[in-house]
Simulated scan of single mutants.
Amino acid sequence: MRESFHGDLARLGEQLGAMCGLAAEAMRRANRALLTADLQLAEEVLTGDDQLDRAREACEEQAQSLLALQAPVAGDLRTILAAVYCAEKIERMGDLAAHVADAARFTHPDHAVPAELEGVFTELGEIGAGMADRVGELILGDAEGGHAELDETDHAVDALHARALAAITKDDWAHGVQAASNLALLARFHERFADQAVSVAKRLEFAETGRTSTT
């Protein structure tokens, strides 16, 4: 019975890891659509968001079944409850990627990101997607230390977010108020995507160790 239970736990982890892969790919594709004004790619990201929604529902159903049928305690209970929490956060990461894709669709055929900020938004997308990939590795491997690692990476995202905001609020900003507002939202979507990844890493570490990171 316990062997079957831990097999079910492992499958739950695999589901969460797959969700991280979907979120990472959604952000990569959304950011590519944003930077290239690719309407078809943006539409594909928006359509694909349902897949993450269904994956979250499947994780929650699996977790609820384990809670009802196995009555887990201690570390196993932490793991199951963490899975529910993490599934919600990862699904939210997918929503944020979809928001980026929606911005690309809204501004098409124009480019939402002016040339002087393309580098900033390229980095934001790459770092955020990489954080999602790393969360997937933590889920399937050793989560201890993962929160501190991703929290450090998040500092780079915060710095890029600040650079974007500084650029759009300069006196010599040449692209108008509407563009500035759109870019502020886009930078926020990227920043929140990274924040969700950090939050998942923190909960994973707690589930594994029973300790809450102080970083």
Rank of each mutant, 00 (worst) to 15 (best):
A156I: 01
E149P: 11
E137I: 07
M131T: 05
L124R: 09
V157A: 00
L140D: 00
G128L: 02
I127M: 09
E123N: 10
T153A: 14
L124F: 11
A129H: 09
V135Y: 00
E149G: 07
I139M: 03
H147R: 12
A129R: 08
G141Q: 03
L160H: 08
V157E: 01
E149D: 15
G146R: 08
H147I: 04
E152P: 03
D133K: 11
E152G: 06
E137F: 01
G125H: 10
G145P: 12
T153R: 12
D151N: 14
H161I: 01
L138R: 01
H155K: 13
D142M: 07
G125I: 07
A148F: 13
G136R: 07
E152N: 11
A156G: 04
G145R: 07
L160G: 02
E152K: 12
L140N: 04
E144H: 13
A129F: 08
A148H: 14
L138I: 02
H155D: 15
E149A: 15
G141E: 00
M131R: 10
L138C: 01
A148E: 15
A132H: 09
A156E: 15
L150E: 01
G128R: 02
V157I: 15
I127D: 03
A156W: 07
V157S: 00
V135H: 01
L124C: 08
G130F: 04
T153M: 15
E152M: 13
D154N: 14
I127K: 10
A132I: 04
L150I: 10
E152L: 15
L140M: 09
D158W: 02
A129E: 03
G128I: 03
A148R: 13
R134K: 11
G146F: 04
A143L: 06
A156T: 12
